[in-house]
Design a binder for these strands. Sequence first.
DNA 1: GTGTCGGCCCGTAGCCGACAA
DNA 2: TTGTCGGCTACGGGCCGACAC
Lengths: 590, 590
Amino acid sequence: MATSTEDDNRESKKKKIDGNKDVDPQLWHAVAGITVQIPELNSNIFYFPQGHAEHAYEPVNFPADIKIPSEIPCRVAAIHYRADLDTDEVYAKLRLVPLHISEVSFDDDDVTRIDDMSETKNKYQFYTKTLTQSDINGGGLSCPRYCAETLFPPLDYSGTPPSQKIYPTDFHGETWEFKHVYRGMPKRHLLSTGWRVFVTNKLLVSGDSLVFARAENSDLHIGILRSKRLNDFGFNPSSKSKPGNEIGIRLVPPHGELKSSSGEKDDKPQKNELSISDKVMGIGKVKAEDVIEAVKLGVNMQPFDVVYYPRVGTPEFFVKTSLIRTVLQIRWYSGMRFKMAFESEDSSKINWFMGTIASLHTADPAWPNSLWRLLQVTWDKPDLLKNTKRVNPWQVEIPLNTPSIPFSCFLPPSRKKLRLLEYQAFPTDDQFSMPTFPNYFQTPNIPSLHLPETNPAGMQGARRDPFCLSLSDFHINKSPLGLFKPNLQQPFDHNATTSMTVRSNAVLQKANESENVPCSPSEKQDHANPAQIVLFGQTIRVDAGNENAVNKITNSFSNLLQDPPKQSSGERLECDPENQCIKETLAGET
Amino acid sequence: MATSTEDDNRESKKKKIDGNKDVDPQLWHAVAGITVQIPELNSNIFYFPQGHAEHAYEPVNFPADIKIPSEIPCRVAAIHYRADLDTDEVYAKLRLVPLHISEVSFDDDDVTRIDDMSETKNKYQFYTKTLTQSDINGGGLSCPRYCAETLFPPLDYSGTPPSQKIYPTDFHGETWEFKHVYRGMPKRHLLSTGWRVFVTNKLLVSGDSLVFARAENSDLHIGILRSKRLNDFGFNPSSKSKPGNEIGIRLVPPHGELKSSSGEKDDKPQKNELSISDKVMGIGKVKAEDVIEAVKLGVNMQPFDVVYYPRVGTPEFFVKTSLIRTVLQIRWYSGMRFKMAFESEDSSKINWFMGTIASLHTADPAWPNSLWRLLQVTWDKPDLLKNTKRVNPWQVEIPLNTPSIPFSCFLPPSRKKLRLLEYQAFPTDDQFSMPTFPNYFQTPNIPSLHLPETNPAGMQGARRDPFCLSLSDFHINKSPLGLFKPNLQQPFDHNATTSMTVRSNAVLQKANESENVPCSPSEKQDHANPAQIVLFGQTIRVDAGNENAVNKITNSFSNLLQDPPKQSSGERLECDPENQCIKETLAGET
DNA sequence: GTGTCGGCCCGTAGCCGACAA
DNA sequence: TTGTCGGCTACGGGCCGACAC
């Protein structure tokens, strides 16, 4: 439908008919946002009804007659990566299969991986351009040389001016036609004819980003990454979310089909009119009844589907079990310093914001034991984040060398085991004992955890601690946006913050080792011989690239429960961030 | 919002905020369609769940666990006349209060009328223009001289060319600005600047009608009457309703907000794109759950609200009790000739179609005793009405002198009472004995009816029977569209059809007496002294203008039950159509 | 190398009278 | 009297190089 010339017989049109087809996961992630992570197929997660409810566009009144747990352990049975037919907004549809407590694994490597290697491969070359005012209002798109020369088909420069047609396809398989011309003085690459149609059709505004992706077969794809101006919970200073709503959820009626400005009822163009970004960002996308239906099925141990729109901005409501385990291994206290990642305004990089935990309160009295938005926080720059008052513990990172930590949480390495009693002697009365999750950890196959501590002294002052993997590493390695790398490699000031990660590092398994700089950047690993380990009676195959993850888990447990498992690469031991950073356990030793 | 000049301080904008306010009933009726009638406030009606379900845009699955009657008697406790904020489509919201059988009145005059007189007054002058292709595609609206000179503010003809701005307000209170210019050779009135904006905004197409209304204070109003091209149940030959659906209900998903053509995803204008008329007409507007909710409340004798979009085209699902009584007094049989009113394609007049009752079958086996769409019919011109197979008995009129009536249903006047037994001897095996409604009629205050017959011999061949009021009269008198009168006065060929009305004539109370030609057109009535009558132990005040209705009812019953009530104007007695036309009763005499 | 600006050109929306039914 | 048509015109979309950061 976008290609209007008659001489081409490329397939256009018709694609909209066959409903919503899946988008390539790499393309999907390229526009989902740099902070978005979707659990692996078959991995175990905790599903949070509260978090799901935040994704609804209307208030969710959970039925009072059934007891709804604050979280439901599930297996991820299916993942569909898709794009909204109206807005192009990406979303993921996950099928979750509730698990009995006895079935829950907190180990990332219990996942049966299907085609892990194929996912690892970078099938695309990406370029992301944030649209300027001139791109929108002017006659065409000013296309950076790198994008034109690297991703577009080779241009015959003999023309006057040199020009060609390019035919990228959007996430629905629709093909668009643009005139690509090299002209001006000095010469530059422009997309002229066809660009206006695209802007109008996709309702682009300046600040939105365009993602070009060139597949291996030279096919060109085009995706849209809407501006996060009005993003999650008032990150933006001009946020319109109502004051007084501590969590900052905006409840608005669902927006219907998109209308272009020219289709508005008003005859004057309205400057205050909401753009599509406003409609996409910060607004829940699912129906309250869908949330309730999902919860009901989950409570009854029935499989259920959830739809997750990452650009809505509220956190994921499914969290890997391993990450929850990590969270539970941290002693949280009020006054604790942390940093948290936010997508930058042009969505191209991550901004880190420092804050302090003000208190630990459950967000909703209906779930007195929930981890959801457990942390009530204050920010060092409160004006920028004034509507973000509560965050999830798995969203934050704990910098190690922040001076404001009231007393060291890192105990000497000799003290291998701590009793709960000792924690209760801590002076901080906001100290939080996880109320529900110990139930999971006290099941037979997940014994109470007592993790080892190491001496953090050696880490102090390190410019980049080789023993500690940070969220920034995680994102560098995970992102298929290779072109973002220059930005991502300086996500925060390493002079000031050496980090203890809270987020799951299991994604490291997908990392390209050459980018896995913290340990031994120049050292190539042996991919030939996957090792096996035995953990809790389970045989786990250690794929190349998975060793880190396995090591982390096994190290975490090994000091407590059994002999150190076989190490496929011994030098990796000290690279384990959890071994380094997670020091405590909550349940008493059995 | 429509008024864009700065020099005016009329209120514009802002009106959309305060939700949906009521529209003046006269304005409302002007665009609801010429055949639409809404019962009076406080009148008694029967609510038909089946009919309500036809107004849903999705299949209605009534709960199987509760017994749902085919009709529920109700009092009309509130009426809101409104216009859809998106489409300008008019709709009525009625609050219905279920009645116990003992409370049901079949008498139009049990209604407590509030401000009857104010409603009677014609507060507006109307003009309706059906839009031509030139009006839509050309630069402006060709405005008939009558409309411009009668409804618009007086134009100063000294200009070159003479022109002014006019500021009509639509049904939402939004004001629009049009340049009204008198130019061309020969001179004519045109709306130029501003017209295009209105067409685009309201998504008008040729065939739609524009209703101008000038209020007494000279305020100008503008309403939209969408084309009925795709109207009720395939009246139009090009109807897109699916074959095989006998009733012809189209079940389509709800349409979202309107999109103008320019807002469509496709960059090419699509000729096959549905216009707003297609979206408005022939498509249910209410949710299935709303229907079910209404029915549930009704069954439990709780008040409930219903929303009725007259332009959807399926019949009203609330019918005055008096009309139902009339229906029950007619002996229906297969082979019976009838005529039925349909709105003409340009909505300006009524077309009458002749047909024959094929059989009497309940439309849905779930309601074996329902009157809803009881009549299965064949049409004299079946190609035009091929999807209208079933109609409600109260929708039709029975012409008296049609030769195809197999035998006279009008018995001699001396036979004042008939026994059911006699009917059962009739040869027509499709003869129908009303299965449920006798329950209502056998209640103490509505005794079994035995209505008088009069000799129809005198009526045969009458050019216009003074004793029989037809549907056409009804519409002439009811319609506030005074300008339609020239069309309406010849709704069908009086040489061929003298009619026995089936439709309620209670609306006569609103009639302007000077238009009430059948009886004594030149005679003015005495408005000074409202009379009272006693009927079934109830004192009924006979307002001026209500006498006809009261007379009809009282005459109908008087011969059976008690002494003739006081006649406020004796010469009106023979004017009663029911006295003339309703001949039979179904229940045996008690 | 690329964002922004002003100019120019061309397509078309919109207004017009001519003409005919 | 008013529907339709073709022409004219003014406006703005869209493409251009100049220029500056």
